[in-house]
Design a protein around this nucleic acid. Structure first.
Length: 591
DNA sequence: GTTAGGTCCTCGTTTTATGA
DNA sequence: TCATAAAACGAGGACCTAAC
């Protein structure tokens, strides 16, 4: 059913952090809003939990997975919408009366559409290409259809009544939804405050919670701090009297249902502008700036945008890596936008963000080597991958492949790890003075090399899925950094880039989990030189040179220059005036 | 004691939609 | 044409907290 849009925007919004939903309750009252922000946290009495079975569908809704995150699918029709379940799971928990009613209404609608439109496929294409300028259904035909549906209900006469000042057949909808077991059918026609009689909009009285339709809102935008002005004469629309507003709504309704008109106008505007937000040509689609290829099961950047990024880097190189602040900022903003989908880019953004933070818009500066080494890698990878990334199913190893630990001492870092498939050890010496998180990530990289995870792709696996290798470490931060894919701490991001590059070669991903130190004693023993638990014959000897750290070494060599370049720009950077929309748009390059 | 995550705030980027 | 909204991501610094 179509839900109350006001409730959708005002009441509840699901917030995820990674794959986990937070459970604190933040109740935003109208008083809090007037005070310009979210108020104190209050905990309300426990409310009715969401009950998936009320959707009539079997087990749980479909889950969308991407990278390390998974979320329940949202189709825009509320939590109990059957559209959130696979077609095979829908209606499985409904009784005979419910499925019978759904089937009857579906058959009536299908027959009506076929009778009225004839060639439905042809009509669909005409609709998509903006050829349909008005509703194809006559009022007489619609009236006949409504009578047919009403005849299937317990109160056919009442179902066709239209409440005063309402364009919708609420009684018909309510009767039908009641049969279907919809959890909030009553809001349409039952009680003093219902859609048929009129509902408060939440100004003086908070809107009621509907836990079967919306999750509780956990986050709210801070409102402006300008003092409340009850006159608001600058808002011309607000000067309209209630009679005028009502007359306008009536006019809209008479022109053929407000919702339908909006849908048509959206299509028409898009068609007029010769561009469509979501446009499918064959098996390729563009959606909010991203490019989706259904043919290759991949997503990323359109060829045109890949060309733009490559040309930008190429031009910067031609100019001996001299860039303008404005141009670099725009480029980085777009690259960051790209990195939301092409996650392998994230580690390579770290030096770019650090440089951008100290660069004025009007300054022309030479990119430090660390920044252009990153850009060269991004360019090479974009070229070879055509800016696309597989969105095929991921396979998570059912258990961890290794456990590692790192010990930082003055003058040296000791890395140790063992394969959970066979007791093995490694102990390369490296540099010292590193942050423990860097050392721990390096230990994981060493384990990937020692235990053969970087040797070659799993035969055939890269054709149908991406494999996640799971490792465990007793450092709390390393898994977080790996999950986020980005850190600005050196040498952490250098190791992260190196690991990202090595894993990409074999089409694998690394997932690290935290294990408390007391449960990671064997790896800890290895870093302390205690090998009693392991068979010395199965020890894997690893030297620092065997680790795929070429990229990190290049970055390390340019580290001093990067710090110097950044320090120079910091001393030059002063507070910049906010850039106006007009100026920003005028200087923006198309891509 | 060290390190890094989390939070808060403002600013930057991207996208589309809407109303004056 | 312009301003605004929404949502996602990033940066910076200060502060608090958790884990090692």
């Amino acid at each position: 059913m179509s839900r109350d849009a006001g409730q959708a925007t005002q009441q509840v919004q699901q917030v995820h952090k990674g794959s986990q939903a937070r459970h604190e309750l933040e109740v935003i009252s109208s008083d809090d809003e007037h005070q310009g922000g979210a108020g104190p946290i209050q905990v309300e009495e426990p409310e009715e939990p969401f009950n998936p079975s009320l959707s009539g569908a079997f087990v749980q809704p479909m889950i969308c997975r991407f990278e390390m995150c998974k979320r329940e699918i949202v189709d825009g029709f509320g939590l109990c919408s059957p559209g959130r379940w696979t077609p095979a799971a829908r209606e499985r928990l409904m009784d005979a009366a419910q499925t019978g009613h759904a089937r009857t209404v579906r058959n009536l609608l299908e027959r009506f559409v076929r009778e009225q439109l004839g060639d439905v496929k042809k009509f669909s294409f005409m609709l998509a290409t903006g050829k349909i300028l008005s509703s194809p259904f006559s009022e007489e035909a619609l009236s006949g259809l409504r009578k047919s549906i009403a005849a299937t209900l317990s109160g056919p006469a009442g179902a066709l009544e239209v409440p005063e000042r309402q364009p919708f057949y609420l009684y018909l909808l309510a009767q039908s939804l009641q049969i279907l077991g919809d959890p909030d059918w009553a809001i349409l026609t039952q009680g003093e405050e219902c859609h048929a009689n009129g509902m408060p909009l939440g100004h003086d009285k908070p809107l009621p919670r509907v836990p079967q339709v919306f999750r509780r809102r956990l986050k709210s935008r801070k409102l402006g701090e300008t003092p409340f002005d009850p006159i608001m004469s600058n808002y011309v629309s607000a000067e309209l009297s209630s009679e005028q507003l009502e007359a306008q709504f009536r006019k809209d309704a008479e022109q053929g249902m407000m919702i339908v008109r909006q849908t048509f106008s959206k299509w028409l505007r898009a068609a007029d502008a010769k561009e469509v937000a979501f446009c499918i040509w064959g098996l390729v689609a563009e959606f909010i700036g991203y490019y989706l290829s259904y043919e290759t099961f991949s997503a990323g950047l359109s060829p045109k945008r890949v060309k733009w990024v490559l040309e930008w880097i190429g031009n910067a190189e031609k100019n001996n890596w001299y860039v303008t602040g404005r141009g670099f900022s725009e480029f980085l903003g777009r690259l960051n936008f790209v990195a939301r989908l092409l996650s392998w880019i994230r580690p390579f953004l770290a030096p770019l963000f650090a440089f951008n933070a100290v660069l004025r818009r009007g300054t022309v500066a030479r990119l430090p080597a660390m920044a252009f080494i990153s850009l060269c890698y991004v360019r090479d990878e974009l070229k070879s991958s055509n800016g696309l990334q597989s969105v095929k199913q991921t396979w998570l190893a059912p258990r961890e492949s290794f456990r590692t630990d790192a010990k930082c001492e003055t003058g040296r870092v000791v890395l140790g790890g063992w394969s959970t498939k066979a007791g093995l050890g490694l102990d390369p010496d490296g540099e010292s003075g590193w942050a423990s998180t860097s050392a721990e990530l390096l230990a994981s990289l060493a384990a990937l090399v020692a235990f053969g995870h970087l040797a070659q792709p799993i035969p055939g696996a890269q054709d149908c899925m991406q494999v996640f290798v799971c490792g465990e470490t007793d450092n709390r931060s390393t898994p977080e950094v790996q999950r986020k894919g980005l850190s600005n701490k050196w040498p952490l991001f250098g190791i992260q880039m190196a690991a990202s590059k090595a894993l990409r070669k074999v089409n694998k991903r690394l997932m690290l989990n935290w294990r408390p130190r007391e449960e990671n004693t064997w790896a800890d023993d290895l870093t302390n030189g205690d090998f009693h638990a392991f068979d010395p014959k199965r020890r894997v000897k690893l030297t620092f040179a065997m680790l795929p750290l070429g990229l990190r070494a290049d970055l390390d060599a340019s580290r001093a220059e990067f710090i110097q370049a950044r320090a120079t720009l910091v001393s030059l950077k002063t507070k910049e005036a906010a850039i106006g929309r007009r100026e920003k748009e005028a200087t923006k390059t198309a891509w």
